[in-house]
Design a binder for these strands. Structure first.
Lengths: 226, 226
DNA sequence: CGCAGGATACTCGGAATCGAGTAATACACC
DNA sequence: GGTGTATTACTCGATTCCGAGTATCCTGCG
């Protein structure tokens, strides 16, 4: 992703619009919004205009005409160049063929999960599960409506993917909550004990200094591997 | 996420380390790396030092001592404050309980998928599926090794989540490839025809002007809803 | 006819990001 | 004792991001 001349995904959206026909920046943003693409690509004005400028600088698009209606700010209409078309296809091919490491917010949360006691984590993840269900219902309602308007899957595919991933996350969260609640989550006893001691005023440093003594055999997992 | 004083997730990682004991920035980075957290949180030096400075500015951490060994650059050791501990717990709770809209790169790719012909897309997604399988095997090997070293799920949870999501993505990609190959993907005929016409030199604008004529009945989906 | 409210069309500058570069020390090995 | 490579520990500034703010125009309604 880093080696692309213009790396903001919004640039791909701009190229995609201009591959259809010349437009001015604001028209691009309206078109994307109308088609629901702003669900898949972060769209904000600041980025749009700087991305358009960068695309022009690199010869991927070029200004076609600058019309001025009345005292409005002038609108510059851009057209895609051959280099831009090539870049669009190449970029799209890369996006489809090559997984990139994404930093999901839940992954960050889970990475530091032991920082809260297990019963609290179970409660919080339970809340997340409820919210995911709400989101899933909203996506389903949207699909229902889109289908009634005659839209085929071809134009909903990114949303279907989104739904699939939401459902997968829900599955994982619910399984984790169940394990925590049932006490079958490996290491949960030492984890709970650690937070009890902390609540009694013991410092993490003191607990880590001799985990087996403070947390029992399960505390052994805190010792360095060697 | 926007209302947090320091919004870079790396700040959460810093707080998490300092909740254990005071450290200097470089030590934080080594600790995170050692524990594999840099898989879940983007860690680079530039961000680390600016995040530490921001945390200090907001009173979430404070400098404890600045040691200088020889002519080395001085190392400032930071400790977490009570405000920092509160922020850590609150942030963690939010991450666990509240889904946020993430912009996945495949979602962007799928959103503009019709920009390439269906057979090409099928091939590209096939490549992606292969790469996902490679990644899954790598994750599995890592887990195998971690378990042999006595690590419990508690410290692998973020990686287990990652694996779960990778598997879900693979499932979606394989299903889509199968539908495309079988020709059962809704709208695929018009989509393929559109790229044939383009290859013959017809412009997208011309095709969109009268989709039903150029693409047959299936082309109707390109007409505006009304 | 006047005017509120929405759509159109951007601008701006402060904040965040990033990774290459630097510079000192430690350690191994010949 | 010299040399080369790895590790420690950061710095810097060029880019990128972003969203609140601004200014104009259109439209319908009383």
């Amino acid at each position: 992703m880093a080696r692309r001349r213009v790396s903001n995904p919004l640039a791909l959206a701009v190229l995609s619009c201009l591959a259809e026909r010349p437009m001015h920046p604001y028209e691009i943003s309206s078109t994307l919004r109308e088609r629901g693409k702003e669900q898949s690509i972060k769209l904000n004005y600041g980025s749009l205009y700087s991305v358009v400028e960068a695309l022009q600088r690199h010869g991927l698009i070029e200004p076609r005409e600058t019309a001025r209606a009345g005292k409005r700010p002038e609108r510059t209409v851009y057209a895609i160049t051959q280099a831009g078309l090539d870049e669009f296809e190449d970029w799209l091919a890369e996006l489809l063929s090559t997984p990139v490491k994404e930093y999901l917010s839940l992954e960050a949360g889970l990475a530091f999960m032991p920082g809260l006691p297990p019963d609290v984590v179970a409660r919080l993840l339970g809340i997340r599960a409820d919210r995911l269900k709400v989101e899933l219902r909203a996506v389903d309602a949207m699909h229902e409506q889109a289908r009634q308007q005659g839209l085929v899957d071809l134009f909903l595919i990114e949303s279907l993917y989104r739904r699939h991933m939401l459902a997968a996350e829900l599955e994982f969260v619910e399984k984790t909550v169940a394990d925590l609640r049932a006490g079958t989550f490996p290491g949960v006893k030492a984890w709970a004990r650690l937070h009890e001691l902390r609540a009694e005023g013991m410092s993490l440093e003191a607990i880590f200094a001799d985990p087996v003594r403070h947390l029992g055999e399960e505390g052994r997992v805190l010792l360095p591997p060697e």
